[in-house]
Design a protein around this nucleic acid. Sequence first.
DNA 1: TCAGTAGTTTATAATGATTCTAAAAAGGTG
DNA 2: CACCTTTTTAGAATCATTATAAACTACTGA
Lengths: 132, 132
Amino acid sequence: MKYIEKLRNSGLRPTKQRLQICEVLFNSEKTFHFTINELDQKIKKQASDKISLATIYNTVHAFEKKGYLKQIPINSNQTYFDTNISDHHHFYDLKEEKLIDLENADVGPINILKKINGKKIKSVEVLVKLED
Amino acid sequence: MKYIEKLRNSGLRPTKQRLQICEVLFNSEKTFHFTINELDQKIKKQASDKISLATIYNTVHAFEKKGYLKQIPINSNQTYFDTNISDHHHFYDLKEEKLIDLENADVGPINILKKINGKKIKSVEVLVKLED
DNA sequence: TCAGTAGTTTATAATGATTCTAAAAAGGTG
DNA sequence: CACCTTTTTAGAATCATTATAAACTACTGA
């Protein structure tokens, strides 16, 4: 299996559950956005075995910490994650409550002029809210 | 009272509670960021009467809808609001878990090149995460 | 002024996402 | 296989937020 190596290399044991979650998350043509709840539904459909919700939470957080997933900063009652870990941004369609990727190239270069003493910039994320 | 007019003009009855919340939110030299919980604490100290948590939620949402407050898109278990309603952005200090204003002038002009069919851009918000 | 009404406040319950717990199960190593 | 550590799990706990429904209050017009 192609994910065993990946997990081992990051110090995560390649358990049956993690491998199945990998399949659902990373074995698709396109990257996508999801909430834990949506992922849970998707796993119910695609995975052969039942995976407990706690495990899904654990795994998603583990993957995020390892950099295989990104959290998307947005105000929602649920946390959104992205399987697209490239440096990019998002539209948020307020009506549909849907996220749309916004590639770096589709945003002019961003230059943060203000510096904060003793702090480094870790990331710059742009959220573009859309209305009709 | 200077807030009575403001509330009436936006179709909100100037109740005792709302006026007191206005004092806490808008009667200060500097703008600030807060969570509902922090606001509740602040009201407990500054306001003469007790205001129920439900009212604080209601009022903050009403003010946000009227444009007197802005929600800050950030991943946190609590929702952050800003009394600074000018068009601006934020640093988020991951270690201190503190927000810092980032004025528009301190970010180069942002040009969103990608257009979404039938949708207008309502806002463009930049979140700059800081680490040590 | 007063009654009617629509809007507000309130305490409390309900909801729902997320985290915690502690016991069982599984992976890895020798 | 035996051992130890990590992981999974069901269910409980937590906690921010929203809903409820009854009491209250601001405004309107007679």
